[in-house]
Design a protein around this nucleic acid. Sequence first.
DNA 1: CCGGATCCAATCCGATACTG
DNA 2: CAGTATCGGATTGGATCCGG
Lengths: 126, 126
Amino acid sequence: MKPQDRYLPPEVCREVGSVLECIGDKWTILVMRTLDGGSLRFSELRRSISGVSQKMLTATLRALERDGFVTRTVTPTVPARVDYTMTDLGREVMVPLNALATWALRNQHRVSAARRSYDAKSARGK
Amino acid sequence: MKPQDRYLPPEVCREVGSVLECIGDKWTILVMRTLDGGSLRFSELRRSISGVSQKMLTATLRALERDGFVTRTVTPTVPARVDYTMTDLGREVMVPLNALATWALRNQHRVSAARRSYDAKSARGK
DNA sequence: CCGGATCCAATCCGATACTG
DNA sequence: CAGTATCGGATTGGATCCGG
């Protein structure tokens, strides 16, 4: 396989990239993994994911809704109740996504070891 | 499974997050998928990935090297030649990563359909 | 309870110019 | 060829305040 044959057509790249991009940002994977266990309302999600700000959780959920990965259901009680649920599409993408997360969980020590080694070398001026 | 049981300990989250984070940025997946086909030198990589700037390609490769996913080999000829190769660790993470990319490739149309639908609703003020 | 609006700091990233 | 250095615009993400 020659180098120049090793890429997809630009249009396809951009399409696929736009799918991977929405998964790549800071909170998306955490939110999806949390929701994959079952529907949750906003405040439950927020408590389950430590460190997420209200703004970012809202933004992340909006993006997931737009991409068709979660649905947003408003129950107009007072105060309002909003539930988030994975769609079929969302559950499908969780299969490869969970595989990746599982890999990360099992191999984090190898990555951090590589980092320590690299940083040690850099510190020695090499 | 209760909401509050649905998260990993914070330290683990941060560790796993740091692994997923490095994969999440703009060029990493493209670079890894390109290198997974075999070693390439800097200029070949740059030509294979349309749109990447020299600066970002360098930064992406440095991060991948630090994380132990690729090795950097300098051949001190004039001009210098630098080859990038996936490590065993890198090839391992490609398994779940390729699964995700394949999913994205096969389902891009469903995602873009969801987006069009969402945007159409938003435009109608709903 | 849910989330929009605003402000601001930090960073990302491309363009450009310069080095061994 | 394979970078490093620097600049500046764009984007990200947290904090805070406000409204339904």
